[in-house]
């Protein structure tokens, strides 16, 4: 989920953003999870059958630069507001996964009229429980070896998604992408851990239909958290997919794509 560089580059808001564009049709902005996204991502492929899917690497991730002042998720959103305008995207569907779903939710609260639908997959970004109950697993207290068991329903699929963690046989560029993604995720999500305390109270600003998809076996943010996240939107549906962990969209790409198709057709 991190190995391939993207073919295009676009300069927006002082950042050089690497970009992948696939398919034709109404536009989807796909915002990747904290560990990145590969050029042959199966969900992106599926969505590209009917849509023009635009996949940027976030500032500081992959080969995208991180301007000095970009240190928070709000800064990333401002880069993407520029990107949306630079590409003149309208009637835009924003699909975000995990950390990317946090960015998508923040972006949707910022009042751009260009977004028409929002899809959040195993999203982080809000705080719902009391001060002594952690909603989101402290992934920064874990090791690389913990990734398959923590982020996936099926650890074997997890290993495959990370190239078997066979760093010795990867290129410098590939390993650098992996390391850089981890460091940037920590930079943006360190504390409060992977949420913005103000976001929950702002979600009512999202006036477009929202679909939240959740892996039944998500060990980073559980299904109950997803349900409470969904309840804060004006118009949201919440669906659970079996046999899927936090990165369940990598384990069950067809199931996730089918739910998204149905939502977009409605």
């Amino acid at each position: 989920m991190f190995r391939t560089a993207f073919p295009e580059k676009i300069d927006v808001a002082g950042a050089s953003i690497e970009l992948l564009t696939k398919g034709e049709g109404s536009p989807i902005l796909f915002l990747h999870a904290g560990h990145g996204v590969d050029a042959d991502d199966a969900l992106v492929e599926r969505l590209a059958r009917d849509h023009k899917v635009i996949v940027p690497s976030h500032p500081g991730f992959g080969a995208s630069s991180r301007p000095v002042g970009v240190t928070g998720v709000d800064d990333i959103c401002h880069v993407y507001l520029d990107l949306i305008e630079a590409l003149d995207l309208r009637d835009l569907i924003v699909v975000g996964v995990s950390f990317g779903a946090w960015i998508a939710a923040e972006l949707a609260t910022m009042g751009t009229g260009r977004i028409s639908r929002l899809v959040l997959i195993d999203a982080v970004g809000v705080k719902v429980s009391d001060r002594e109950t952690r909603d989101i697993k402290d992934i920064f207290a874990t090791t690389v070896e913990d990734i398959p068991g923590l982020f996936f329903h099926d650890p074997e699929k997890g290993k495959a998604s990370f190239g078997g963690f066979d760093f010795k046989n990867m290129t410098d560029a590939e390993v650098t992408r992996f390391v850089r993604n981890r460091e940037s995720l920590l930079l943006f999500g360190w504390s409060p851990t992977l949420y913005n305390p103000k976001l929950l109270g702002r979600l009512h600003r999202v006036k477009v239909p929202v679909l939240l998809l959740w892996g039944a076996d998500d060990k980073v943010v559980g299904v109950d958290y997803g349900r409470r996240y969904a309840a804060a939107f004006l118009d949201a549906r919440f669906e659970v997919i079996e046999g899927a962990g936090h990165y369940g969209y990598l384990e069950q790409p067809d199931a996730f794509a089918a739910r998204i198709d149905t939502f977009l057709a409605a």
Partner: peptide
Amino acid sequence: GWINPPGYESVELNATALRMG
């Protein structure tokens, strides 16, 4: 999990360490 959290060492150093196992 706390021996070497991401960001504590440089990207270059961490990438080299991973490649060397």
